[in-house]
């Protein structure tokens, strides 16, 4: 079966911490930016209403802080990405330059949307995310390497194990995260499944 995406095994780079539980997708991308019919400009919008006050004056936020400029790994707390199913949220983070997100937990739809665009979301327990955040806040130049095959993060402070569901890890490391081609390759089985469902025939006998 064809793999339709690139194989994603390791993500190396500096990291940016965004602290707080339950950061919802309205905060990641306010709804007014969803009126654009393409994702092209989403990279300009992450956390817009936290980075600027209503008058447009900058407010302190890690995504505006020069010391985190160029970071490719986002560090978050629990239930990140809850709320709206807008794919604009992971698209905005990806287009901003984020290539992996490490957190305590992720909302289900957000994690699914991230996987579908090849953006890994991996989890670590609270004490380890605190350790990573503290490390990066103390020295933003710290290089982290997230290794999906070995299921760990290599840092100057040691090796930190990560959790990632086997299915997501397989999809990323084998290049199956963009599902369309894989799903389409099963067309005859899809037709067989459909033929067994009485509602598709209007329950005609």
């Amino acid at each position: 079966m064809p793999a339709s995406g690139s194989q994603i095994g390791q993500i190396a780079g500096t990291a940016v911490p965004v602290r707080g539980d339950d950061i919802d997708t309205d905060r990641i991308v306010p709804a007014r930016y969803l009126k654009e019919v393409t994702f092209d400009h989403m990279g300009e919008y992450p956390f817009m209403d936290e980075r600027f006050d209503p008058q447009g004056n900058p407010r302190p936020h890690p995504f505006s802080d020069p010391k985190y400029h160029g970071a490719s790994i986002l560090l978050v707390n629990a239930n990140f990405g809850c709320g709206s199913s807008r794919e604009h949220a992971p698209q905005a983070l990806y287009r901003f330059g984020i290539r992996a997100i490490v957190g305590e937990s992720f909302a289900a739809i957000f994690a699914g949307n991230s996987l579908a665009i090849g953006l890994p979301t991996v989890t670590v327990p609270h004490e380890n995310i605190e350790k990573l955040m503290a490390m990066v806040e103390a020295d933003p130049t710290v290089q982290l390497t997230l290794d999906l095959e070995e299921q760990c993060i290599n840092s100057p402070g040691g090796v930190i194990p990560i959790q990632v569901p086997d299915t997501a890890r397989n999809a990323l490391t084998q290049g199956y995260w963009d599902s369309a081609a894989t799903l389409a390759a099963n067309e005859s089985k899809v037709r067989q499944t459909a033929a067994r469902l009485p509602y598709l025939k209007g329950f005609k006998s």
Binding site: M1, L34, K35, V37, T38, F39, S85, R86, E87, D166, T167, A168, N170, A171, Q174, Y176, S179, T182, L183, N186, K189, V190, T193, A194, L197, Y199, L200
Partner: peptide, 25 residues
Amino acid sequence: VDTLPTGQTQLFIGLHLIHEVTSPQ
């Protein structure tokens, strides 16, 4: 429908509803 190479399930979707915001892309 099937088990995919990743171990995920390929699930048939009986009804798909779309609206103007999340469909243009």
